[in-house]
Each structure stands twice: as structure tokens, then as C-alpha cells.
């Protein structure tokens, strides 16, 4: 029995990490971590609204996260407030409205579960959603890799040389919204960004190309999930935060040790 839910948690968590690593690379390269955070926070509003409207929660979260991203893109064009301030407004308003709606609706919601995740309650159906959704997201990343990377390096070059950076940008938003929708149950809205940012940051030091960085980030994320879950079992700590702590430990190791080794290799 114990074996069973733990195995499910492992499979779900690793499946998620394999996606957040490569996608998170783009978040890091584009300096969008606060943006990702804002979308993740809006997920709680998505949960509340989909419970009120009685629609699929994963779908509701995806729609609301995408809508918040769209709102931000529109507000940015109007040049009224800095992106930084806009993100702050959207991020915390979405979170707060989500909490208020959840309270007003009178629906009994396991708030802690949505804020911090409940990976140990993952069902077989959840695993199917994560792996199928994850496969679609990874497939899109692979197919769109060159235009995505070109637009990330320089949107003007991409546009001048026949690509559509505006389109790739929207696609990136949609992929991010999907990841948030499937990740929420695993690590919760408050910690999703950690899985998007920390594994790529860990991978940076040991990777010589963007492609390698994406692969290493996926592996680092999977290792963090595994380590975190075993840690949470061993020390009886909450699983979501334990995964993030494990990811942080990996990151610290990566900046402490291989930095010099890597440097020497490059100079040789």
C-alpha cells in the first residue's frame, strides 16, 4: 500500500520534472521567473473559479493562467506601469481573489493542498494527465526549438530572418500555462516556479550548449524530485517543500564543486 502511493508520487513527480527543466530554461534565459510566478499564483484563482463553475480544475487553471499572461502582454504594451509593478499587482491580486472566491463560494477546498501540493495523493489518472500533457509540451518544445531559441537570443534577428517571435512568445506562454496546470497538484502554486527555475540554474554551470542545459535541467529536476520524496518519507516532512529543498541542495552543489572543474576543462 505504502509502496503504491509512493511509487505513484515518484512517477508523477519525475514526469513533471522532465518537462519543467527544459521549459524552465526559457524562463531563466528570458528573465521571466517573476512572470512564471505570477502565472502560477493565478492558478489558485483558476481552481476557485473552476470549482464554482464545476468544470475540470486542470482545464480551468490552464485557461486562467493563460488569460493572466495575455492580460500582462496587453498591459505591457500600454506602457503605463513598469512590468515589475504590473507583475506584482497581477500576481498577488490573482492569489487574493482566488482565496476570496474560494471562501465566498462556500465550497470546501483543501487550500493547503493547492498552495503547497499533495503529491502523495496523486492518482493513476493524474499520472496519465502529467505524462500525456508532458509529452505534448516536450514535443512542442522540440518542434519549436530553433525559433524559440532564436527569439530568446534576439527577437529582432528572428523576425528579420523570417521567424515569428511574437507567435513563439505566445506559444511559450501557453506551454507555461499548461505546465502550471499539471504541476499544481504536485508541488502547489507557491512552489511551481522553483521547479521551473532551480533545475535550469543548476544545469547552467555544467552545460556548454542550450540543448545540453535543457537535458541536464530535466535530469536535475528528476533527481530533486526523487531525493525530495525519499527525504520526505525518511524525515516525515511535507513532500512539495522537500522536493524544492532537494533541488536547492543540488543547485548549491553545482555552484560549489563543478564550477572550477568546468573552468579548467575549458581553459585546457
Amino acid at each position: 500500500m505504502l509502496e503504491d502511493f509512493f511509487t505513484r508520487a515518484l512517477i508523477a513527480g519525475i514526469g513533471l520534472a522532465l518537462v519543467t527543466g527544459p521549459l524552465g530554461c526559457f524562463i531563466v534565459w528570458r528573465r521571466m521567473s517573476y512572470f512564471g510566478d505570477t502565472m502560477a499564483h493565478s492558478a489558485l484563482l483558476g481552481v476557485a473559479l473552476s470549482l464554482v463553475a464545476q468544470v475540470n480544475v486542470t482545464l480551468g487553471v490552464f485557461v486562467i493562467a493563460a488569460a493572466v499572461a495575455g492580460a500582462l502582454l496587453l498591459l505591457q504594451r500600454r506602457n503605463t506601469l513598469s512590468t515589475d509593478a504590473l507583475l506584482g499587482i497581477l500576481s498577488h491580486s490573482a492569489l487574493a481573489i482566488g482565496l476570496v472566491v474560494a471562501f465566498l463560494s462556500g465550497i470546501r477546498v483543501d487550500l493547503m493542498g493547492f498552495l503547497f501540493g499533495d503529491i502523495l495523493a496523486v492518482s493513476v489518472a493524474d499520472i496519465a494527465v502529467i505524462w500525456l500533457g508532458g509529452a505534448v509540451i516536450l514535443g512542442a518544445l522540440v518542434l519549436m526549438w530553433r525559433p524559440l531559441l532564436a527569439a530568446t537570443v534576439n527577437a529582432d534577428i528572428a523576425e528579420a530572418e523570417g521567424m515569428r517571435p511574437e507567435v513563439t512568445r505566445v506559444i511559450l506562454m501557453l506551454l507555461l500555462a499548461s505546465v502550471i496546470a499539471i504541476a499544481m497538484k504536485i508541488v502547489g502554486v507557491l512552489l511551481i516556479t522553483a521547479l521551473l527555475i532551480i533545475p535550469p540554474a543548476t544545469a547552467r554551470r555544467v552545460s556548454g550548449t542550450p540543448e545540453l542545459m535543457a537535458v541536464v535541467a530535466a535530469v536535475a529536476g528528476a533527481v530533486a524530485v526523487t531525493g525530495g520524496l525519499f527525504g520526505s518519507l525518511r524525515f516525515d516532512t511535507p513532500s512539495g517543500p522537500s522536493i524544492v529543498v532537494a533541488a536547492l541542495v543540488l543547485f548549491l552543489v553545482s555552484i560549489a564543486v563543478p564550477a572550477r572543474l568546468w573552468q579548467r576543462k575549458r581553459e585546457a
Binding site: V28, W29, R30, R31, R146, L149, A150, T152, V153, N154, D156, I157, A158, A160, E161, G162, M163, P200, A201, R204, S207, G208, T209, P210, L212, M213
Partner: peptide, 23 residues
């Protein structure tokens, strides 16, 4: 196209060789 300003974020490991196949 060679734009006037091109700041590549430090977090992206991009060698000159990889830059050649950007687009």
C-alpha cells in the same frame, strides 16, 4: 541581420559555433 544591441543573458550557454545555427 546584425542588430545594434544584442545582450545575451549570461544564463544561456551559447558558443560561437552554436550561434551560427541560430536561425
Amino acid at each position: 541581420y546584425v542588430p545594434q544591441k544584442l545582450a545575451i543573458d549570461w544564463t544561456m550557454p551559447l558558443t560561437v559555433r552554436r550561434l551560427m545555427t541560430l536561425t
